[in-house]
């Protein structure tokens, strides 16, 4: 029965990503709203649901969120800057990624610049880039490192 299992994996991966992003919010909602509601309406089931929720929090969500933060902290040490620029060239949209990397850490460590370019279909462009293109902007730069830092900070506060 591989297909149902593969479907379970896909659904599981997507659910974990969404849940991991908003986990602290979900816990707050559970503690303040769901928990008293369960006690009032389904008292016989409430302890079991709480136990399951605590298990998921302790064994899945918090370890995964901490692992993501730890992994990003390691990448952040080596990835000094990374900018993604979308621009139009000969009627096609091009994505250029400029990254400044430091393989070893330290003040004298060599900084490597890496540039990658690839053409992108209109449908694959991020929404913000499509909006900028509609307002006739010729190139749209996105600071990847800053964006990811902000996302993780938001995850900490969520």
């Amino acid at each position: 029965m591989p297909l149902p299992l593969i479907a379970i994996y896909l659904v599981g991966a997507v659910s974990i990503t969404v849940l991991a992003t908003f986990w602290a919010d979900i816990c707050e909602w559970f503690a303040e709203r769901a928990s008293p509601w369960l006690e009032a309406h389904v008292p016989s089931l409430a302890p079991h649901i709480k136990k399951a929720f605590i298990f998921i929090d302790d064994k899945v969500m918090v370890p995964v969120r901490r692992a993501i933060k730890r992994a990003w902290a390691v990448v952040r040490q080596h990835l000094l800057e990374s900018t993604v620029t979308y621009f139009k060239q000969g009627g096609e949209w091009v994505r250029r990624i400029d990254s400044y990397l430091q393989e070893k850490l330290g003040p004298r460590a060599k900084v490597i610049k890496r540039t990658e370019e690839s053409t992108v279909d209109w449908d694959e462009l991020p929404e913000s880039v499509r909006a900028a293109a509609m307002s006739r902007k010729k190139s749209v730069p996105i600071d990847f490192v800053k964006t990811r830092d902000a996302e993780l900070h938001a995850m900490e506060l969520s």
């Binding site: 602290a24 816990c27 559970f30 503690a31 928990s35 008293p36 006690e39 709480k50 929720f53 605590i54 929090d57 302790d58 918090v62 969120r65 901490r66 933060k69 900490e156």
Partner: peptide
Amino acid sequence: DELPSEARAAFLRG
């Protein structure tokens, strides 16, 4: 995420 599991469990219990 930085809280110990005992504290998180107590909060989730209400």
